[in-house]
């Protein structure tokens, strides 16, 4: 179905090897890194580089020279007032929006600005939307089955059948997100919190290296929120997580480093207490 893509990958792979042999890369986020999906290079312990990214819509700068790095295994919270560019940043990372300028690299070698959304997903980035986006007419089980890490080309899916270990994997995640009782229910009938969990579960099935979570606990009960925080902290280390959230209690519970975005660029960075004490942050949140 997609031979051109394969050829492209093959070529890119060869290019990458050639580049590596030259040892061209010097640590700056400039040229020299190449596109090589499927092989995440974490040799510098950094999983995501955003450098000098600018995105504008009709003159309005949604992102303004944004630079940000996420370490491998890190759990990072992003906060910021409305319109700070949090969602646009996720759009750039997942390939939905192309930046006007700047570079976005996944690991050392994968240039995100050159990949399509599905390719980025294959490379190992999973995304949860602000509004829970699941397949309402599929059962919870099927939702997870579709998200499962697998060969997702047409030819394969046409003849794919669920193997026993795959079935176990789905069942495991269903337990993890506490939907094992609702496995066969159409996802559209789940409660709002359950839908949020289901979407997180789909992310887990993808086995991504980096999870982008846009307001994951919106609409959850306190109990659910608490369990979500537990889940996320347990994932950190093996996965890297970027959580956009307004709920400060939740951010505090996660306990990671916090980045404050404002008007499209980073305003402050550090642990929550430091950031909250920063006068600029206070000004942004409380007004002058």
């Amino acid at each position: 179905m997609i031979p051109t893509l394969e050829i492209e990958r093959e070529r890119a792979h060869l290019d990458a090897e050639r580049e590596n042999q030259r040892e061209h890369w010097d640590g700056s986020a400039a040229d020299g890194r190449v596109y090589r999906p499927g092989e995440l290079d974490l040799s510098h312990k950094v999983i995501l580089y955003l450098d000098d990214i600018t995105v504008s819509f009709d003159g309005f700068r949604a992102l303004n020279k944004l630079s940000l790095t996420i370490d491998a295994g890190e759990l990072r919270c992003i906060i910021g007032p409305n319109g700070a560019g949090k969602t646009t940043m996720m759009d750039v990372i997942t390939g939905k929006t192309r930046p006007d300028s700047g570079t976005a690299f996944f690991g050392q070698t994968i240039d995100l600005t050159r990949l399509t959304e599905p390719e980025i997903a294959h490379a190992g980035i999973g995304r949860k939307f602000q509004k829970p986006t699941i397949f309402e007419h599929h059962s919870a089980f099927e939702n997870l089955e579709l998200a499962m890490k697998a060969d997702k080309r047409v030819r394969r899916t046409l003849f794919a059948s669920l193997l026993d270990d795959e079935r176990d994997r789905v069942a495991e995640v269903l337990r993890q997100i506490r939907l094992d009782q609702a496995a066969d229910r159409p996802a559209g009938l789940l409660s709002h919190g359950q839908k949020q969990w289901l979407e997180i579960g789909m992310l887990l099935m993808q086995e991504p290296r980096l999870l982008l979570l846009d307001e994951p606990v919106a609409g959850m009960t306190d109990d659910e929120t608490e369990r979500t925080a537990e889940l996320f902290t347990s994932l950190a280390g093996k996965h890297s997580l970027v959580v956009v959230e307004h709920d400060m209690a939740f951010v505090e519970a996660l306990g990671g480093k916090v980045t404050v975005l404002c008007e499209g660029s980073v305003l402050a960075e550090g642990d929550l207490a430091t950031v909250q004490a920063d006068p600029r942050v206070i000004e942004v949140y409380l007004g002058r």
Binding site: I2, K96, E117, E136, M202
Partner: peptide, 13 residues
Amino acid sequence: DAESRVMFIGYNP
């Protein structure tokens, strides 16, 4: 039902 979700879990619609 949700094309963008399909893309973000790695299928090319």
